[in-house]
Design a protein around this nucleic acid. Sequence first.
DNA 1: CGCCTGACCACGT
DNA 2: CACGTGGCCAGGC
Length: 113
Amino acid sequence: MPTDAKPAIEAARRILAAVRAIPRGEVAGYGEVARRAGLPGRARMVARLLSHNEDPRLPWHRVLRSDGRIAFPEDSPGYIEQCARLRSEGVRVEGGRVRGKRAAATLDEQVWG
DNA sequence: CGCCTGACCACGT
DNA sequence: CACGTGGCCAGGC
């Protein structure tokens, strides 16, 4: 078997790499991460991966919805945690929304420079 | 194979 | 900016 992983596995690998590539203090949308991983239209796959992820080194908190909002309900522990982590990196969060960093998925490349 | 669910997205109002 | 609507994709049963 010539060292080739299953498509799904390879996709997951690339998505995680894209998430890890988000610089500290910066944020990105699920759809944006998917595109960056070469998987346009797979935003939900990114979300699914993060929801099952257990690697503490993965900067999952830098991934937001396309409108810059945190993807958890306001009262959930995930929301609290993400909010705290972002603020600790100097990211401004107001009303469950990140201000000033422009994480919208429609802004191709803008966040990634 | 159909049906339902989810850390989603784009678009119109 | 808030909401509702339809679309998309991967999994679980």
